[in-house]
Design a protein around this nucleic acid. Structure first.
Length: 285
DNA sequence: AGGGCAACCTGGGGGC
DNA sequence: TGCCCCCAGGTTGCCC
């Protein structure tokens, strides 16, 4: 479940379901799941067994488990298709489960990932302003749901770039958590063409785009995120309901809900941008 | 510096 | 039925 509202939905499910539990019998069922854990899958398992979960935390699309012993964090990225599922028995352990744990209350925790772009690793901590963060996440900027997110600062940083605003939103450095769906939705709401250079928008324009992204992601989180299919579900397997509220993403050829012109789809770096060419204006340098 | 693109994967859907 | 091509909520890195 890839973008911020979906990852936060997963975080909440894990926080409710596994905090206080102890991980046991770590199993790595696919080598790609721990490919970023340099010491390898065996060391990964040894590093987790017997550890009690203290909290589930998140920055942008990166999740991590903090343990009561204050040791290395378990960092997870869901990639394009990763899920965490809490199971009452082993019946749900299908062929897409890449790692699993026995919990000390008899239930199972499973990491499923059809496309295997997701990953798990154990990470030490880096100390920075505002506290500690796993080193594996320290290159990611704060997200708009972070109480310490500096919207003005992020807008100023974005506006220094001559790259397109869409590229700036997808870059996780200054603002994290925004992916292809919410970038397109934010730009539609702010009436900004995705190819507009961030520098042309200036800090004020970037601030308005960030505000639109925050607004749309807040609305999506309230209904459990966007699920086009059962690849994107909560820890209990429930779907999110925001897909029906999308204004731009996936609406190629359908009328703009603001001006009725047909929504366009344009290729953008091996993916797609969806926008209204009539009411999302493009300013040039 | 910024854009393009391939790499890493599995699987669904449409066209023929 | 099958095959082939395109598509997909991400990230990284390399090449011009």
């Amino acid at each position: 479940m890839p973008e911020l509202p979906e990852v936060e939905t997963v975080r909440r499910g894990l926080a409710n379901g596994v905090v206080g539990r102890t991980l046991q019998a770590t199993r790595v069922l696919h080598p790609r799941a721990t490919r970023r854990h340099e010491p390898g899958p065996d060391a990964f398992a040894v590093g987790l067994d017997g550890r009690q979960i203290a909290s589930i935390d998140r920055r942008g699309k990166f999740l991590w488990f903090t343990f009561a012993d204050h040791g290395d964090a378990l960092v997870a990225h869901l990639g394009m298709s990763g899920q965490f599922r809490i199971l009452v028995d082993a019946d749900g352990l299908d062929s897409h489960v890449r790692a699993s744990w026995q919990l000390d209350d008899g239930r199972l925790l499973a990491f499923r990932d059809q496309r295997t772009f997701g990953w798990l690793l154990l990470s030490p901590w880096t100390t920075g302003q505002g506290g500690d963060i796993p080193t594996a996440v320290s290159h990611i900027g704060r997200d708009p749901f972070d109480p310490d997110f500096d919207s003005e600062g992020a807008a100023r940083a974005l506006a220094k770039s001559h790259a397109s605003i869409k590229r700036g939103l997808l870059n996780q450095r200054h603002v994290s958590g925004i992916g292809n769906i919410y970038a397109d939705e934010a730009l539609w709401r702010a009436q900004v063409h995705p190819d507009t250079p961030a520098s042309v928008l200036q800090a004020e324009g970037c601030r308005r785009v960030i505000a639109a992204a925050t607004e749309v992601m807040t609305e999506a989180l309230a209904v459990g995120g966007t699920s086009f299919d059962p690849l994107y579900v909560t820890v209990n397997g429930d779907l999110g309901w925001f897909a029906r509220s999308l204004d731009a993403y996936g609406r190629e050829g359908q009328p703009c809900r603001r001006c009725a012109a047909a929504i366009q789809r344009q290729r953008f770096t091996n993916r797609s941008s969806h926008f209204c060419a009539t009411c999302q204006t493009l300013a040039e340098d």
